[in-house]
């Protein structure tokens, strides 16, 4: 059995009008891209519409892909811009979450964090406590396994901004997870 072509090859073929290559790209990225859009909009129908627009854009723009980034990054970048447009149309722009109150730099109990990090309920709760920008960066890092350079490209932000954003998000998450365990133990 022959291995499936890599994404860059598929995108090149799609740029030449090969719909089967677009189908293969769709099947490869549809779920994570939809998940990313849905996490920002929280509306499955609108997210499905934007997903459709994203892949129509992929079809129209494939021949202009220059290979300077990974295909995953390029497609997520399209999804990000369309999602931001949808936010604007709704009149609720994403707020920037980079301003953050100083947290005391106290050590966290990492054993407690490991335990809490294994519990979906705790992780979901603590992710929900983050600002939208922090949560988006963490989701791209941990769900989509993107490098900080790729996240910066998708979100059209500086690499240093993304590293700082993930750093703060990580501190808040660990503190939250530790608190969940401590409260559970105290109860």
């Amino acid at each position: 059995m022959s291995a499936e072509p890599d994404s860059a090859t598929l995108l090149t073929l799609a740029g030449q009008g090969d719909k089967a290559a677009l189908s293969a790209l769709y099947r490869r990225y549809e779920r994570p891209v939809y998940r990313f859009i849905l996490s920002k909009l929280n509306d499955p129908h609108e997210a499905a519409d934007i997903l459709q627009d994203v892949f129509m854009d992929v079809w129209r723009s494939a021949s202009r892909f220059e290979g300077r980034s990974k295909v995953q990054t390029w497609i997520f970048g399209i999804a990000w811009r369309k999602t931001i447009d949808a936010h604007r149309k709704r009149g609720r722009m994403a707020t920037t979450g980079d301003e953050m109150p100083e947290i005391e730099d106290e050590n966290v109990n990492t054993e407690a964090c490991v335990l809490a990090g294994q519990e979906a309920e705790h992780v979901h709760h603590c992710l929900g406590e983050l600002s939208e920008d922090h949560r988006t960066a963490v989701r791209l890092a941990f769900l989509e396994d993107m490098s900080y350079r790729a996240i910066a490209e998708v979100l059209e932000a500086a690499e240093g901004t993304i590293k700082t954003r993930v750093f703060h998000a990580k501190k808040l998450l660990l503190r939250c997870l530790q608190g969940r365990v401590q409260r559970g133990a105290d109860a």
Binding site: T110, C113, V114, G117, Q118, A120, L127, F142, L173, L177
Partner: peptide, 10 residues
């Protein structure tokens, strides 16, 4: 270790 646990759970 905590970050890896959190990522695996997500």
């Amino acid at each position: 270790a905590a970050l890896i646990a959190m990522r695996d759970t997500m």
